Simulated assay, not measured.
Amino acid sequence: MAKVLIKKLNPKVELPVYKTDGASGMDLMAFIEEPIRIAPNSSYLVPTGLSMAFSGDYEVQIRPRSGLAAKKSITVLNTPGTIDSDYRGEIKVILFNHGTEDFLISNKDRIAQMILIPVIKMELEETDNLPDTLRGDGGFGSTGK
Rank of each mutant, 00 (worst) to 15 (best):
S106V: 05
F96D: 05
E90N: 06
G138H: 06
S85F: 15
Q113A: 12
G139W: 10
G141W: 03
T75E: 01
F140H: 14
I117S: 13
G136L: 04
E126K: 09
I111T: 01
F103L: 07
S142I: 15
T127E: 02
N78M: 08
L130I: 08
M114F: 07
E126A: 12
G139R: 12
S106I: 03
V119M: 03
F96R: 10
T127N: 04
G139N: 12
S85A: 12
K92R: 10
G136A: 12
S106P: 00
E101R: 15
T75L: 01
L104P: 00
I115K: 01
I105F: 02
G99N: 09
F140M: 13
T100A: 07
L77V: 12
D132H: 00
I94T: 03
K108M: 12
M114H: 09
T133M: 00
T75C: 00
D128G: 05
I115G: 06
K108L: 11
S106F: 09
E101C: 11
G81Y: 15
A112R: 07
L77P: 04
E123N: 10
Y87W: 14
G81E: 14
R135T: 06
F96M: 11
T133A: 03
T75N: 01
N97D: 03
R110G: 04
D84H: 15
V93H: 02
I83A: 06
M114G: 10
G138I: 11
L124T: 06
E123I: 14
Y87V: 09
P80I: 13
G99H: 06
D86A: 10
G138Y: 02
N107L: 09
G139A: 11
P118C: 12
